[in-house]
């Protein structure tokens, strides 16, 4: 669905942000991008719907080149981005208006716009905030509304740039659940995060460092890679615990490390079987 070919990008002050990135994202895939601050994750995200254009190489979204201005409306309809700081993306005076902005921009008829907004409010459970100004919401609520704003546009591919950073753990899990549900319905998900705890369910993890892709694979193999530490990333605590228990003769299968609940279940089975 999305293909990056030899993409390089430097910011105006000369800082190279991406160097020779090759990446293919399949339809319906849940792909996670991780890496430390300044590794180029967000710059990559901005390339996925043409907000930034590659200086070398090309980005192709379902056959459309992001450098072709006439294709941009089509590309933006396909790929929606949710940013880290919700305040940077509010445009409406009320939550409802904010949600209507995207679909209206896509030139949908009013009846359709109404439907999109209602659906987005229902999906996020935010009906009661319909007439509130997005600026009066708390940080976490704001992130929810920003998410709803993208949902209202019904894109086929969703890009999330650290969207759970301001959310309490429960809301974070809730957002992830919703994202997974979208993915099961066939949406493509690109998920950028520092929080490796969230990545158990990803199909594929891309690790970036200094503008390059340095590691790629399914979560189990990426988390088992010894170079992860030297890239400045720390393992989810349960996965780290499982790895250390293994060296002490307690083997916890990968799929049981996804939650404290399943982890505890497995340990009890191992220890209390006699």
């Amino acid at each position: 669905m999305i293909r990056l070919e030899k993409v390089s990008y430097s910011y105006p002050d000369g800082t190279p942000a991406l160097e020779n990135i090759n990446l293919a994202i399949k339809k319906g895939e849940f792909i996670a991008i991780i890496g430390k601050n300044g590794s180029g994750k967000s710059t990559l995200a901005l390339h996925l719907n043409g907000l930034l254009k590659p200086q070398k190489g090309k980005v192709i979204i379902r056959g459309m080149d992001t450098r072709d201005i006439s294709k941009l409306p089509g590309i933006r309809k396909l790929v929606g981005i949710v940013f880290q700081n919700p305040e940077t993306q509010f445009v409406g005076r009320t939550v409802e208006e904010d949600l209507a902005f995207g679909p209206e921009n896509l030139c949908l008829p009013p009846v359709e716009i109404r439907k999109c907004v209602d659906m987005a409010l229902a999906e996020t459970g935010f009906e009661k905030y319909r007439y509130r100004s997005p600026k009066t919401l708390s940080g976490g609520q704001g992130q929810f509304v920003a998410l709803a704003g993208i949902l209202a546009m019904r894109p086929e591919c969703l890009v999330f740039d650290e969207v759970t950073s301001m959310l309490d753990p429960d809301s974070g899990t809730d957002v992830l659940e919703r994202i997974r549900k979208l993915q099961r319905k066939g949406k493509t998900v690109v998920y950028i995060t520092h929080n490796l705890e969230e990545l158990h369910a990803a199909d594929r993890i891309i690790v970036m460092d200094k503008g390059r892709i340095v590691l790629e694979g399914d979560p189990e193999s990426v988390f088992a890679d010894p170079s992860l530490q030297s890239l400045g990333l720390t393992l989810p605590s349960l996965i780290e615990l499982a790895a250390r228990l293994k060296t002490c003769g307690v083997a916890i299968p990968w799929e049981k490390t996804s939650s404290p609940h399943s982890f505890a279940e497995e340990i009890c089975q191992l220890f209390l079987k006699t």
């Binding site: 890496g35 430390k36 601050n37 940080g139 650290e162 950073s165 301001m166 520092h194 400045g232 990333l233």
Partner: peptide, 11 residues
């Protein structure tokens, strides 16, 4: 208020 969001693990 949320002093370490947006920082990588080393930060």
């Amino acid at each position: 208020d949320e002093p370490i969001t947006g920082l990588d693990p080393v930060g």
